[in-house]
């Protein structure tokens, strides 16, 4: 994802802003990292360049 996406994404649960913690960048794209809600503290992963902002109960850690 590009960093300017931060302007419009938010926590799916309470719609508050997210903090960005980048683990890996490549050519201006954020490849991996974490988005953390500034209000509820829920953490959302960025995996292979795509932020996973599913509510936690819709994720599954190990897809079948």
């Amino acid at each position: 994802m590009k960093e300017d996406l931060m302007e419009i994404i938010c926590c799916p649960l309470d719609k508050h802003d997210l903090d960005l913690d980048v683990t890996e960048r490549e050519d201006g794209e954020i490849i991996s990292g974490e988005l953390v809600c500034t209000e509820c503290g829920e953490s959302f992963p960025i995996e292979d360049g795509i932020p996973n902002l599913l509510p936690p109960d819709m994720r599954d850690e190990a897809p079948a």
Binding site: M1, K2, L5, E7, I8, I9, C10, C11, P12, L13, K15, F44, G49, I50, P51, N52, L53, L54, P55, M58
Partner: peptide
């Protein structure tokens, strides 16, 4: 810009 998310609980800011 691709985002994984739920259509019921959109991870997008108001009015954007």
């Amino acid at each position: 810009a691709l985002v994984q998310g739920d259509a019921v609980e959109l991870p997008l800011a108001d009015d954007c």
